[in-house]
Amino acid sequence: MPAQKLDGKALAATMRGEIATQVQARAAAGKRAPGLAAVLVGEDPASQQYVKNKHKACQDVGFATAAHRLPATTSQAELLALVAQLNADPAVHGILVQLPLPKQIDGEAVIRAVAPAKDVDCFHPENVGLLAAGHPRFYPCTPHGVIQLLTRNGVSLAGKSVVVVGRSNIVGKPLALMLMQKPTAANPAAADATVTVAHTRTSDLAAVCRGADVLVAAAGVPEFLTADMVRPGAVVIDVGTNNVNGRWCGDVHPGVWDVAGWVSPVPGGVGPMTITMLLHNTLAAAQQIDG
């Protein structure tokens, strides 16, 4: 029997409806709409599409949104000046600088320049440190989307063996932190799971993966996770977004659907949830800044 689909598109629509309701309540109370500023440097097609999708999602829930498009020749000083301007703008609650940036710009310097209170991607070292300490200001968007996709579909994580294949600062590391931590009032999305972080250089990766109740593929390698690496009935989350000869595919091979109990598809799985959690963070930032 094929695996059941973890439908991120449907869940994202539900959660965006919840966010829109909160935005309407803020408006009724005379409060400013949450504002998200997106900064795009250069003409990367994938980045342009991401910013377009985020802009539409913001409009759909009633956010104020602006896209700042800069040429690929923009200097680091010019970009930092724009970030400083957005930091000082009271109508902007969240700042998103689309990565990757051109080679002449130090991405780490830009990440550090964004005010932590407006860092709705949760990339700033201060926010990463708060997450590691179990007192998050925001949750990183993709990891939070993964956990929402699991928990809202009734997948229990407490005490379960979870293997995360991937160790990036954007997905693997923060997701492992959230999964392993103990839930508290300050850290409600923590999952109480038993977590193993693996990667493409892990010895006998297939055996490590087969030990998982929940398996997260976030290595950025097209269809590397094959059916023989999955325990029958396991839950599989595909975080990969790979363009192979004009075709979008994840990190999970199609054959996994014949073995697993649940699988998140690509597209329509984690992707819509990532954007939804960006909206969630921008609303949270507005609540923290404006009340």
Rank of each mutant, 00 (worst) to 15 (best):
S75T: 15
K160W: 07
N169W: 06
G94Q: 11
F138L: 14
K160V: 04
D121A: 04
K118I: 02
L82R: 12
R152I: 05
K173E: 03
I111L: 12
K103T: 14
G134T: 04
G159P: 14
M178S: 03
M178H: 00
N87C: 08
A133C: 04
D121G: 03
V120M: 04
C122A: 15
K160M: 11
R167H: 13
L175V: 02
V162W: 01
D106E: 13
A109I: 07
S168A: 08
A117Q: 15
V162N: 08
H135E: 12
G145L: 08
H124M: 14
L131S: 05
D89Q: 02
L96E: 09
T142M: 05
A77G: 04
Y139G: 08
T142V: 05
H144F: 03
L179I: 08
D119L: 11
G134R: 04
P174S: 07
V97I: 09
H135F: 00
D106L: 01
N127I: 11
G129D: 00
S161W: 00
V92R: 02
P100D: 01
I95P: 09
L179D: 13
H135D: 02
V128E: 11
A133Y: 05
G107E: 15
K103V: 11
R152M: 13
H124G: 14
F138R: 14
V165Y: 00
A115C: 07
A88I: 05
V164T: 02
P90L: 00
P102F: 05
E126A: 14
N153Q: 12
P140Y: 15
V155I: 15
L157D: 09
V92A: 01
F123A: 15
D121M: 06
E78P: 02
D106T: 07
A115P: 03
V110P: 13
A91P: 00
G107K: 12
G154R: 04
L82Q: 09
G159K: 11
G159M: 10
S161E: 15
G129C: 02
R112M: 03
L86G: 13
D106A: 11
Q104D: 10
